[in-house]
Computed example of a mutant assay.
Amino acid sequence: MAIQWKGVMPAVTTKFTPQDTLDLKMFEVNIKAQLEAGVHGIILGGTLGEASTLSDPEKRTLVQTTVEIVNGQVPVIINIAEQTTQGGIQAVKNAKEDGASGLMMLPPMRYKASDKETIAYFKEIAKNTDLPIMIYNNPVDYAIEVTLDMFEDLLTLDNIQAVKESTRDISNVTRIKNRFGDRLKILSGVDTLALESLIMGADGWVAGLVDAFPKETVAIYELQKAGRIEEAIAIYRWFLPLLELDINPKLVQNIKLAEVATGIGTENVRPPRLPLSGEERKQVLEIIETGLKNRPKLPNIAALQNA
Score class of each variant (00 low, 15 high):
Lys177Phe: 09
Leu298Ile: 05
Thr85Gln: 00
Ala302His: 12
Asp191Met: 14
Thr118Asp: 06
Ile160Glu: 07
Thr53Ala: 14
Glu267Phe: 08
Pro57Leu: 01
Lys282Cys: 04
Gly204Trp: 04
Asp115His: 14
Asn248Gly: 07
Gly227Cys: 10
Asn294Ser: 11
Asp141Ser: 13
Pro139Ile: 02
Ser52Trp: 03
Arg183Asn: 12
Gly87Ala: 00
Ala194Thr: 13
Ala51Cys: 03
Asn172Ser: 07
Gly46Asp: 01
Gln73Thr: 15
Lys177Leu: 15
Val206Trp: 00
Val163Lys: 08
Gln64Leu: 04
Val74Ile: 15
Lys297Pro: 02
Val92Met: 07
Arg60Asn: 02
Thr65Leu: 08
Pro275Thr: 14
Asp182Met: 09
Lys225Ser: 13
Ile77Trp: 03
Ile186Asp: 08
Val146Asn: 09
Gln224His: 09
Thr167Ile: 04
Trp238Phe: 12
Ala126Asn: 04
Ala207His: 14
Val8Asn: 02
Ala100Gln: 11
Pro271Thr: 06
Val12His: 02
Leu154Tyr: 06
Tyr111Val: 10
Tyr221Glu: 06
Pro57Trp: 00
Asn159Gln: 14
Leu35Trp: 13
Leu48Gly: 10
Gly265Pro: 14
Lys59Met: 10
Val67Ala: 08
Met9Phe: 06
Gln224Leu: 02
Pro296Arg: 04
Gln86Leu: 01
Val74Tyr: 08
Glu50Thr: 06
Met9Tyr: 01
Ala194Glu: 04
Gly201Asn: 02
Gln73Ala: 15
Pro214Arg: 03
Glu279Leu: 14
Glu286Cys: 04
Tyr236Asp: 13
Leu292Tyr: 09
Leu103Tyr: 00
Pro275Ile: 13
Ile264Cys: 05
Glu68Asn: 15
Thr14Pro: 10
Gly291His: 02
Pro272Tyr: 05
Ala33Asn: 13
Glu124Phe: 00
Ala120Ser: 07
Thr14Met: 05
Thr118Val: 08
Leu187Asn: 09
Val206His: 00
Tyr236Glu: 12
Gln305Ile: 15
Lys59Trp: 00
Lys215Met: 10
Glu244Tyr: 14
Asp115Val: 10
Glu286Leu: 11
Lys282Met: 13
Phe16Ser: 07
Asn137Arg: 07
Ile264Ser: 01
Glu279His: 09
Gly38Pro: 08
Val173Arg: 12
Gly201His: 02
Glu82Lys: 00
Asp20Thr: 08
Gly227Thr: 07
Leu243Arg: 09
Gly201Glu: 03
Gly291Pro: 02
Leu35Pro: 10
Ile89Thr: 01
Ile144Thr: 14
Arg175Asp: 11
Glu286Ala: 15
Met109Ser: 01
Asp169Gly: 01
Ile89Gly: 00
Glu222Asn: 05
Ala307Asn: 15
Ile77Gln: 01
Val8Ser: 01
Asn248Gln: 14
Asn137Thr: 07
Asn138Lys: 05
Leu157Met: 10
Thr66Met: 10
Arg110Asn: 07
Val210Asn: 12
Ile77Glu: 02
Asp153Asn: 11
Asn71Met: 09
Gly38His: 11
Val76Cys: 13
Gly72Met: 11
Ala113Tyr: 05
Ile135Ala: 03
Asp23Cys: 04
Leu187Met: 15
Trp5Thr: 04
Gly208Tyr: 12
Tyr136Gln: 05
Tyr136Lys: 02
Leu195Asp: 09
Ala219Ser: 15
Trp238Leu: 14
Val146Arg: 06
Ile288Tyr: 06
Asn79Ser: 15
Ile3Gln: 01
Ile170Cys: 06
Thr61Leu: 13
Glu231Gly: 05
Asp153Leu: 12
Gln83Phe: 01
Ile125Ala: 08
Gly201Lys: 03
Val210Glu: 08
